[in-house]
Design a protein around this nucleic acid. Structure first.
Lengths: 231, 231
DNA sequence: GGAAAAACTTGCTCAGCGTGCAAAGTTGCA
DNA sequence: TGCAACTTTGCACGCTGAGCAAGTTTTTCC
């Protein structure tokens, strides 16, 4: 089928007309969803509204996403896929926490964070995260588990499932915590100073994890320095 | 009317007829939902089915729960509320990780774990957790954050939000990881040996967190002993 | 004890969701 | 050019979740 140009439908080129159309439609849908979110607020528009705005039928929308939430969560999904990609690029012998920190550093630039920040501020008022968004984080956790399992397998045959799952979950939780604190502090502020603070929060959260949260009752000694895990 | 038995509608006695009826209806709904889950499997029955089984109208169901998932998640909610209650009972000067571990120990008995274990095994095949279930965990995280914030406030005025949120999220993640590993290993096995393993997994996961996951590439040295945090 | 008030249940209705199906329209390949 | 594969779309259908108003039960107050 795909024998025309490349070999494996991997990363760079996918020039098939069909693939391009699908990608464009997908993008049109998320754009429409975001646009409606901006103008109407969360929960105040229907799938039909999105479909109309994107110039497709309601039925076609469901060929791409299973709900409005899912369309919006594409933003989060994109961000986290990016994070995992960075994470996989780290050397296999590096401590996992350090890899996680490095991967997160690579994402704290305006272009990458901006969509997530906007989505977050726009949906903030509706208390809890949507189903699809939580799924996206869960999916990311699974990916980290997979990577961690590979790395630990190198050392011992019987992989310690608890170690791997607890670590992955903790990393995600701490990353989420850093993002939450940043969002509540700075809103959608993407200035260099704000992004520097985000980076510091991410570093601090990984440091907390790496030190077993021993800093306990003396937060002053930690919140200003980048602590031990930093590169 | 209500003067016969109790005095204050606080904790123990709430003999009001209405409260009793509501509690009974609520219980009937979750029982019906669980029963249908057992007989039909997840996602194979409707709200109307539950309402019929519970002997109420569809409309009344929605007065109690917002979805089938929510009715089933009542089990998880009950378990986690119990956990938080235990957690709050711990002395305020105890390290949080130790409090968490102690609270978890108090829950690793057959009567408490059984409903959760059954729910988990019955819904296991449908991959991801339901929305309401995830909400229950999220709610528990918020509770831990609240407790942690109170405790840290005793030491410093400007509470470190990152510390509190990262810690609470990590604790929940590790607890979840321990439960997941236990479920996948032992299924719905509630034998003393299995519960002892659950307790050990919970202790180990908290120990991992307390040690900053430094055990890294030598799982053998940890999985057999109860490590440093144990009481 | 009895009537008014408050709380709860229920049936009706309705917009919206998510999916199966088959017809119509596109794209890929020879 | 024409066939095969894929995609879009309209239609239909059962289910969801919530508002509303009329009935029923419990509580309260005299």
């Amino acid at each position: 089928m795909t024998t025309s140009t490349g070999s494996i439908p991997a990363a760079a080129a996918t020039p098939s007309r069909r693939e391009l159309n699908k990608a464009a439609t997908r993008q049109a849908i998320t754009d429409a969803a975001l646009s409606l979110l901006r103008s109407h607020g969360p929960g105040s528009f229907t799938v039909e509204d999105i479909a109309d705005t994107a110039g497709i039928s309601r039925r076609t929308f469901f060929n791409y996403f299973s709900s409005t939430d899912a369309a919006l969560a594409a933003v989060t999904h994109g961000f986290l896929d990016n994070a995992i990609q960075q994470f996989r690029l780290r050397p296999a012998d590096e401590p996992i926490l350090q890899s996680a920190q490095a991967a997160l550093m690579a994402l704290a630039d305006p272009m990458t964070v901006a969509p997530l920040a906007e989505l977050f501020t726009l949906t903030q008022q509706s208390t809890l995260m949507s189903h699809s968004e939580l799924q996206a984080w869960e999916h990311c956790t699974e990916q980290i588990i997979a990577v961690a399992r590979e790395r630990v397998t190198g050392a011992a045959e019987g992989v310690d499932e608890l170690y791997v799952r607890a670590l992955a979950g903790a990393v995600i939780s701490c990353g989420k915590a850093a993002l939450e604190v940043w969002f509540t502090r700075r809103g959608a502020d993407l200035s260099p100073a704000s992004l520097a603070e985000l980076r510091q929060l991410l570093i601090d959260s990984m440091a907390l994890l790496g030190s077993g949260f021993t800093a306990g009752t003396s937060p002053a000694s930690r919140s200003t320095s980048s602590a031990s895990v930093s590169s």
